[in-house]
């Protein structure tokens, strides 16, 4: 469809154009100029902040060049630890989310494509995966917190007082993160499952393939790139998350997003004004690398979705 774009000869800017290439060139320049507001806006509110981070990471507060900020990211055990814990958290919750979310997507895809269950699950997943943040932390406080539903129920009915302090640690964070990774997996992976054709099952079956053979030789290989891509997306999602962690963990800054937040809010140590920017740059590097791999996989994944 986009290929059928035609270019009317008249210029949108200069009105009916006189003949001659000069006018046409003007018109073409005008075409690009019309995109200026968009580029200007994105430049000001997205590119400029990113540049401020990138440049700030290599400068002192006074503006002179330095490698101290970046090197402290690698030498300070606090920062290295925060990065390592963030990556661990992201890997674990991405895998858990991908497995359970993938299963849920399969169960939903097998159902009625126009059914209420499907629409219900998709809409709920959209909310939980993308807009939960602080509210999901409260949901888990209401469930496993010291006076949460499960804790109170067990205490009152079974007389057992459970130690629920795990909720406020990285373990709790992993449980809550998995909670929003599952619906994200559903949203991302469901279209790929929908793309599976009945003909493929039939072809496999007519050649004598059972369920196992189908998934081993047909379904699995076709879905593998989408699944991997989704896994990477879940990784960056957990790696970048701040709100849930900030609401749940009130002591210390164990993961990198919290560490950056603490750097922003705390008293600035002389000579370390830009360390937060170096940490932020580190995040950009990791996320960009993962997204680059994602884009490569994505190209493969789309092959079967024609």
């Amino acid at each position: 469809m986009t290929g059928s774009v035609t270019t009317p000869s008249s210029s949108p800017v200069a009105g009916p154009a006189p003949s001659g290439t000069g006018a046409r060139r003007m018109a073409r320049a005008g075409n690009y100029l019309a995109l200026l507001p968009f580029h200007g806006y994105v430049g000001l509110f997205l590119i400029l902040p990113t540049l401020i981070v990138a440049v700030g990471a290599f400068t002192t507060a006074g503006g002179s060049l330095t490698l101290d900020n970046v090197s402290s990211v690698f030498t300070s055990s606090v920062f290295v630890d925060a990065f390592v814990k963030s990556i661990q958290l992201a890997v674990i919750t991405a895998i858990a989310g991908a497995v359970f979310g993938g299963l849920l997507a399969w169960a939903v895809a097998r159902g009625n494509p126009n059914g209420l269950l499907r629409q219900f699950v998709i809409a709920a997943s959209g909310v939980l995966a993308q807009f939960g943040g602080v509210m999901l932390a409260f949901a888990f406080l209401a469930t496993f917190g010291f006076s949460g539903l499960v804790t109170v129920f067990i205490k009152n009915q079974l007389g057992v007082v459970l130690d629920m302090s795990w909720l406020y640690t990285l373990t709790g964070l992993a449980v809550v993160y998995t909670y929003f990774q599952i619906p994200l997996m559903l949203i991302v992976f469901l279209p790929s499952l929908d793309g599976m054709r009945q003909e493929w099952y039939d072809a496999s079956a007519s050649l004598g393939g059972g369920s196992w053979a189908f998934w081993r030789y047909v379904g699995g290989p076709i879905l593998a790139p989408s699944f991997l891509g989704a896994l990477l997306l879940l990784f960056t999602n957990a790696f970048s998350a701040y709100a849930t962690a900030a609401a749940l963990i009130s002591q210390g800054c164990p993961i990198i997003t919290l560490e950056i937040g603490c750097q922003m809010q705390s008293e600035i140590v002389l000579g370390q004004e830009n360390v937060g920017k170096a940490l932020a740059l580190g995040m950009i590097v990791i996320v960009s690398a993962v997204m680059a791999v994602y884009a490569l996989i994505q190209r493969r994944a789309s092959r079967w979705a024609q």
Partner: peptide, 29 residues
């Protein structure tokens, strides 16, 4: 053609995949 190659909605979309393009090819499922 100008359409971005390797770009389809069916595959894992960065976000809003199922939210936006819900096109189950459910024939005979």
């Amino acid at each position: 053609m100008s359409q971005a190659p390797g770009f389809t909605y069916g595959a894992a979309a960065p976000e809003g995949g199922a939210l936006i393009s819900k096109s189950p090819k459910g024939a005979g499922k």
